[in-house]
Write a protein that binds this DNA or RNA. Structure first.
Length: 821
RNA sequence: GCCGGAGUGGUGAAAUGGCAGACACGCCGGACUCAAAAUCCGGUGGAGGAAACUCCGUGUCGGUUCGAGUCCGACCUCCGGCACCA
C-alpha cells in the first residue's frame, strides 16, 4: 500500500472542536420529534474521570445519532455545584468556595469540550448560582405553605467529619455516603420534606416505569418498604394510658404472651415507675441507648417494666418489657410479642421464661409449644383463638382487624420504611433556607419578593469546617418580615440533593427570569426521554427527583408524574479488579488518555469494551486496539483520496457478485448499527458490526481498484456509521475525500431492504437435532424442493439409512431438521 | 432471611428458541524487511486423528421442544439492594 500521512488525533481533534458549533435544541430546524437526552450532571471536583467519559460518551453517541436521524435533541450539561468538597478545599487552600467551584467548572467544561461532546452550552446551569437556587427557595416557601416542608426536632444522622446532618438515604452501612466515616445519632431541630406523604404514589409509579432497569425499581421498592397490617390499642393495666402497637400478624393476636417497647418509647419510664421498677428500667434504657445498632444486634435483651397491658380480644394481662430489638423509628415503637410465631419473640421468651402459645398450625401439622425449637412464622390455620379457630391466617387477619375496629381497639394500617427527607445541613456552601427566626413571631418565611436569599460569597472559613453563617452578623441580622423586630436568618442550608431534584426541569428555560419554568417548554421536552447515569443514585437522586416532580405537579407547575421515561444505568469503570479511585491508586486520567491516543480512541474504547450497563474492565491493550482500528479506517479512507470520491449507493447495477455481496454487507451493517444504537443501546455490537464492514472492504480491496463505486460507498458508510463514536476522525476523512455536505449535516443512512436479499442461502441440515451437513439452495426454493434436496444429501442419506423419516422442519434461511425414528 | 441481577474460550465479550464463541485483545504461523517496528494475510474452545473427520462443550441436575446459552422447575456460586421493619 502506498505511503499515507500518519493519523494524528491531536491536530485533527483540536481543529474540529474549534469548528463545531453544536446546535441549540431550539435552533434546530425541521419538524423532527423532540427528544430530551440527559446524562446525570457532574459535581465540579476539578477533573473528569473515566466514569464521566463513559457516561457522557454514551450520551453523545445517542445525541449525534438522533440528530442525524432528524430529531430535535435537547442535550444539556450543567454542574451540581453546591457541596462539601468546595468547603474542604477552600479551607485547605485559602480560597473562596465559590471561586474554587467556578474555576473547577471552567476546567471541566474544557475537558468535556476536548472529548468532543456535543452539548448545548447555551443552556448550561450551575446550581450554586443565585439565578438557579432562587427558584428552589421559592419552591421551599410553597412547600412550607402546604405543609410539605416542616420543622421538627428529631433524632438524626450526624457525621462528625462532615459536621452536618445526613438524610437516611445518605447513610450506607452506618457510614457517611461521601467519606465512609461513622455516623452517629443526634437530636436536633431541622427542616424536613414530607416524602412519606408520597410513599404510595412513588411505589405505584414504579409499575409504570417499564423503561427502567428492574434492579433500580426493586431498590426503590425495598427502600420505600411498604407493609400492611393493623394498629392495635392495648390498655395499660397500671396506668390511664394505651399502648398502641403495629403488627402485620393480627391473626396471631391470641398467641401474644407479652409486649415489648423500644428503650426510647415515651411510656418506658412511666411504666417503670408505675410498676415499681424505675431503677431497673432506667439502668437498662441508659445502657441500650448508648449501644450502636450493630452491638444491639448481638442478642435479644430486655427488662420487665412491672406493668401489664390488656389483650383487647381476650382480656389477658400481658407483661410489658423494654427490649433492645424494638426500634422506635418503625411503626409505633411497640410490638405485641407472639413467641410461637415470631423468631425474635421466641428467643426472648425462652431467655426470660415467658410462655409460648401456638395459635397457628401449619397445614397438616400439630405444633406443640414445649417441643418447638424455633418459631413457626408461616401462615396456617388458627387454633386457640376462640371463634376465629379454623380460619386461614389471611382470613383471620382481616376478621380480627375488623373485630378490633368495631370495638374501637384497632384499625387497618400501612407502614413504610421510608422516612421524611431531612434537608437541613449545618454547612456553608449550599442554598440558604429562606426563613427568619423571630423571638416574637417564631419561624417566619422570607417573602417571595425578597428572594433570592443570597449566600454571601466573601466569607471567612473556619478551621474544623464549621459553617461561618451563624457568626456572620451582617448577613445573619434581619428585621422580622412579619413584625419588623430584630430577627435572625436561618443558618442551615439545603441538602445538595435538593438542587439535583429539579435541574432537569430548569434546562428547558435556563435563563428565564420571571418564573422557574415556561409551561409550554416543559410540555415540549418532558419527560426526559433517555436518562443516563450511575446506579449509585438508585435511591438517592432518582427517588428525590421523582418526589420533587410530583410536588411541583401539585404546586401547579407541570402536569407530569414521572420525570424520566427511560433510564440507563451504566456500570462502573474497573481496573485491576476494583473501581477506579484515588485511594486505590488505580485511576486512569482521561487527559493522559486523550494526550496519548486522542478523544476518538477514548470514546471508541469505552463504547466497545463492554455493553453499557455492565462494568467496564479497563485494558490498556484494549485501548490500543481501538486506536489501531481508527488507524485502519484512516488508511483505508485515505487510499481513496483525490480520485473523485462518491459516497452514494451505486445501486444494484451491473457489478460482479463479489461487489454485490459487499453492497449487501453495507446495507446489512446499516441495519445492524442503527438497531444497536437506536433501539437496543448495544454500542459494543454496533462497533463490532462496523469493524466487520471494514474487514470486508479490506478483503475486497485486495483485488479491486479504489475506483470501484461499491468500495467507495462502503467506505463512506463506515465513516457515517462510525461518526457518533469517533466524530473527529470521521469528519476529517469525509472532508479530505471531498464529500459534501459536511458529515454532521448528512442524514443517517437508511438501509435498502432489497439489497439484503441474496440469490442463494446456505442451510444447515440437522438429523435428530444434530448438524450433519449443510447445503446451498436458491433463496426462493419451495419447502418441498428444500426437503427433497436435503433428503438427497449424501451425509443425511447415510445418517437416516434404514430408519423412517417421521418429521421434517424447514426454517427458512436457516436450516432443515430431519427427525428419524 | 427477603428481593433483584449474573454465571459462555486464556481475556473483554457475541448470539428475535435455529450452525455457540461474531468482533476485539492475547498467543502462534506466514508475507514484507539486511533486521526490527508498523502493516497485511492466515490459524486459535477442549479431546482424539496423519488427514477427511469424530466426540465433548454455555455453573449443576431434571423438564418442554424436531431443536435450549436462550423457555420451565429445583439447586450451587458470585455481585447488588433491604434487613431484629414487628
Amino acid at each position: 500500500m502506498e505511503r499515507t500521512e500518519a493519523y494524528d488525533p491531536q491536530e485533527i481533534e483540536l481543529r474540529w472542536q474549534e469548528r463545531w458549533r453544536f446546535p441549540s435544541a431550539l435552533d434546530q430546524r425541521g419538524d423532527g420529534r423532540c427528544f430530551y437526552l440527559l446524562e446525570m450532571f457532574p459535581y465540579p471536583s476539578g477533573r473528569i474521570h473515566m466514569g464521566h467519559v463513559r457516561n457522557y460518551t454514551i450520551g453523545d453517541v445517542l445525541a449525534r445519532y438522533l440528530r442525524a436521524r432528524g430529531h430535535r435533541v435537547l442535550h444539556p450539561m450543567g454542574w451540581d455545584a453546591f457541596g462539601l468538597p468546595a468547603e474542604t478545599a477552600a479551607i485547605q487552600r485559602g480560597v473562596q468556595p465559590a471561586t474554587w467551584t467556578y474555576q473547577n467548572i471552567a476546567a471541566m467544561r474544557q475537558q468535556l469540550a476536548r472529548m468532543g461532546f456535543s452539548y448545548d452550552w447555551k443552556r448550561e446551569i450551575a446550581t450554586c448560582h443565585p439565578d438557579y437556587y432562587r427558584w428552589e427557595q421559592l419552591f421551599f416557601l410553597q412547600m412550607l405553605e402546604r405543609g410539605i416542608a416542616y420543622r421538627k426536632k428529631a433524632v438524626v444522622n450526624w457525621c462528625e467529619q462532615c459536621g452536618t446532618v445526613l438524610a437516611n438515604e445518605q447513610v450506607v452501612d452506618d457510614q457517611c455516603w461521601r467519606g465512609h466515616r461513622p455516623v452517629t445519632k443526634k437530636e436536633l431541630d431541622g427542616w424536613f420534606l414530607r416524602i412519606t406523604a408520597y410513599a404510595d404514589e412513588l411505589l405505584e409509579g414504579l409499575e409504570t416505569l417499564t423503561g427502567w432497569p428492574e434492579k433500580v425499581r426493586t431498590m426503590q421498592r425495598n427502600w420505600i418498604g411498604r407493609s400492611t397490617g393493623a394498629e392495635i390499642d392495648f390498655a395499660v393495666a397500671e396506668l390511664e394510658e394505651h399502648l398502641t402497637i403495629f403488627t402485620t400478624r393480627a391473626d396471631t393476636l391470641f398467641g401474644a404472651t407479652f409486649a415489648s417497647i423500644a428503650a426510647e418509647h415515651p411510656l418506658a419510664q412511666a411504666m417503670g415507675a408505675a410498676g415499681g421498677r424505675s431503677a431497673e428500667v432506667a439502668e437498662f434504657v441508659a445502657r441500650i441507648t448508648r449501644q450502636e445498632a450493630t452491638e444491639r444486634a448481638q442478642g435479644k435483651e430486655g427488662v420487665f417494666t412491672g406493668c401489664h397491658v390488656v389483650n383487647p380480644v381476650n382480656g389477658e394481662k400481658l407483661p410489658v418489657y423494654v427490649a433492645n430489638f424494638v426500634l422506635m423509628e418503625y411503626g409505633t415503637g411497640a410490638v405485641m410479642a407472639v413467641p410461637a410465631h415470631d423468631q425474635r419473640d421466641f428467643e426472648f421468651a425462652r431467655r426470660y421464661g415467658i410462655p409460648v402459645r401456638v395459635v397457628v398450625q401449619p397445614p397438616g401439622g400439630a405444633l406443640a409449644a414445649e417441643k418447638m425449637e424455633a418459631a413457626y412464622e408461616d401462615d396456617g390455620v388458627l387454633t386457640g383463638s376462640a371463634e376465629f379457630n379454623g380460619m386461614t391466617s389471611a382470613d383471620a387477619r382481616e376478621a380480627i382487624t375488623a373485630r378490633l375496629q368495631e370495638h374501637g381497639k384497632g384499625r387497618a394500617r400501612v407502614n413504610y420504611r421510608l422516612r421524611d427527607w431531612g434537608i437541613s445541613r449545618q454547612r456553608y456552601w449550599g442554598a440558604p433556607i429562606p426563613v427568619v427566626h423571630c423571638a416574637a413571631c417564631g419561624v417566619v418565611p422570607v417573602p417571595p419578593s425578597d428572594l433570592p436569599v443570597m449566600l454571601p460569597t466573601d466569607v471567612e472559613l473556619l478551621e474544623g469546617g464549621r459553617s461561618p453563617l451563624p457568626s456572620l452578623q451582617r448577613w445573619l441580622s434581619v428585621p422580622c418580615p412579619s413584625c419588623g423586630a430584630a430577627a435572625r436568618r436561618e443558618t442551615d442550608t439545603m441538602d445538595t440533593f435538593v438542587e439535583s431534584s429539579w435541574y432537569f426541569l430548569r434546562y428547558t428555560t435556563p435563563r428565564l427570569e420571571t418564573a422557574p419554568f415556561d409551561r409550554a417548554e416543559l410540555e415540549r421536552w418532558l419527560p426526559v426521554d433517555q436518562y443516563i447515569g450511575g446506579v449509585e443514585h438508585a435511591v438517592l437522586h432518582l427517588l428525590y427527583s421523582r418526589f420533587f416532580t410530583r410536588v411541583l405537579r401539585d404546586l401547579g407547575y407541570l402536569n407530569l408524574d414521572e420525570p424520566f421515561r427511560n433510564l440507563l444505568t451504566q456500570g462502573m469503570v474497573i481496573k485491576d479488579g476494583a473501581k477506579m479511585s484515588k485511594s486505590k491508586g488505580n485511576v486512569v486520567d482521561p487527559d493522559e488518555l486523550v494526550r496519548q491516543y486522542g478523544a476518538d480512541t477514548a470514546r471508541l474504547f469505552s463504547m466497545f469494551a463492554a455493553p453499557p450497563e455492565k462494568d467496564l474492565d479497563w485494558s490498556e491493550r484494549g485501548v490500543e486496539g481501538s486506536y489501531r482500528f481508527l488507524t485502519r479506517v484512516w488508511r483505508l479512507a485515505l487510499s481513496f483520496e483525490g480520485r473523485g470520491f462518491s459516497w452514494t449507493d451505486p445501486g444494484p447495477g451491473d457489478v460482479d457478485s463479489a461487489a454485490a455481496a459487499l453492497r449487501s454487507t453495507v446495507h446489512e451493517t446499516i441495519r445492524r448499527v442503527s438497531r444497536d444504537i437506536g433501539e437496543r443501546m448495544h454500542f459494543n455490537t454496533a462497533v463490532a458490526a462496523i469493524m466487520e464492514l471494514v474487514n470486508a472492504i479490506y478483503e475486497r480491496r485486495a483485488s479491486v481498484s479504489t475506483d470501484e463505486p461499491v468500495a467507495q460507498f462502503a467506505t463512506a458508510t463506515v465513516l457515517r456509521l462510525l461518526s457518533p463514536f469517533a466524530p473527529h476522525v470521521t469528519s476529517e476523512l469525509w472532508e479530505r475525500l471531498g464529500a459534501v455536505p459536511a458529515l454532521d449535516e448528512v442524514p443517517w443512512p437508511d438501509h435498502d431492504e432489497s439489497a439484503l436479499v441474496r440469490d442463494t442461502v446456505e442451510l444447515a441440515l440437522q438429523v435428530n437435532g444434530k448438524v450433519r451437513s449443510r447445503m446451498t439452495v436458491a433463496a426462493n426454493a419451495s419447502e418441498a424442493d428444500i426437503i427433497a434436496q436435503a433428503l438427497a444429501d449424501e451425509k443425511v442419506c447415510a445418517d437416516i439409512a434404514g430408519r423412517t423419516v417421521r418429521k421434517t422442519v424447514v426454517v427458512p434461511g436457516r436450516l432443515v431438521s430431519v427427525v428419524v425414528g
